[in-house]
Amino acid sequence: MLEKIKIIKIIKKLKQASVDEGFLKSLRSRLEVRISANPVIKPAEERLFLTERSTLSGLFFKLKTMPIPLIIALIAILSGGGVTMASQASLPGETLYPVKILTEDIRSVIALNPEAKVKLEVKFAAERVAEVKEMLAEKGVEPRGLDIALSRFQKHIARAAEIIEVEKQKGKDVSKLAGETVDNFHIQKKAAKQAFEDAKQEFFTKKKQLHDQLLEAIKSGDTAGQEHIRAELADLEAAKDEAEAKKDVAIAVLEAEKDRLQDKLEETKQQEEEALDAAERADEELEEREEEQQELKEKIKEEQAEVEKEIREAIKNVKEED
């Protein structure tokens, strides 16, 4: 019995096997997009969808299904409220930041077509990178703010990729949009890397300053000062490592989504090439068949001529015998 419990305990250790958290986050965002693109429609709503004839009525339907506070906020935003305008320059963690995010979410909801939605997501992703850059430059590594901006950044990227995939599955030609989005992802990646690179340079400058101060403190025998500077140096190192780790996660997510889109593009190209190949093969087969038929016709003609010749000779022979 004891042995059995031990075996079960060992097997249970497999629960600790790690999984890729970045992938799970990205999949959740894609799932959210899929859910909103393909909602469960209740019979009453289904009727509304079926009678939906114009883009305008589609927009009304969207508004109808929105929660009331969202509609009020939408009206405030569309009417160009001062708060909304002011919120646009806010950073994560600041009071007006939720308004900025709400504005973006509403713009995304009311975007009239998938292409516009993808472009907005890419634009918002760029805005998050700009926020990261500003935060790093102004406040240094502020983990909460960076987490907010980077997790939203990942969401925007995943949403853009997912919308394209959903469209592709519907049979739409998304090669141009996917190509543009891949290029944009590439730009975002460079911008994000640059933002962290700038911050890294700033770390090195600060580190050098602290080292100089430490040297001074050692020379003057200021032990309390030395301790303080050492603690600051340790904090600086930790902040640098943290920023580095966050950058790696953001870049990895971006790379994964970029690869996914590129795979889709390749897939489309391959399908097009295969279709082209199949068409060419069909043409060749047709030509071959026509040639065969031609040869057959000529052969039949020759045979007919030969048979006629034989008949003529036979007739001639019969006449001569007579």
Binding site: I7, I11, K13
Partner: peptide, 9 residues
Amino acid sequence: SASLAHKYL
């Protein structure tokens, strides 16, 4: 432990 668990399974 994990490799032992794999071995068992």
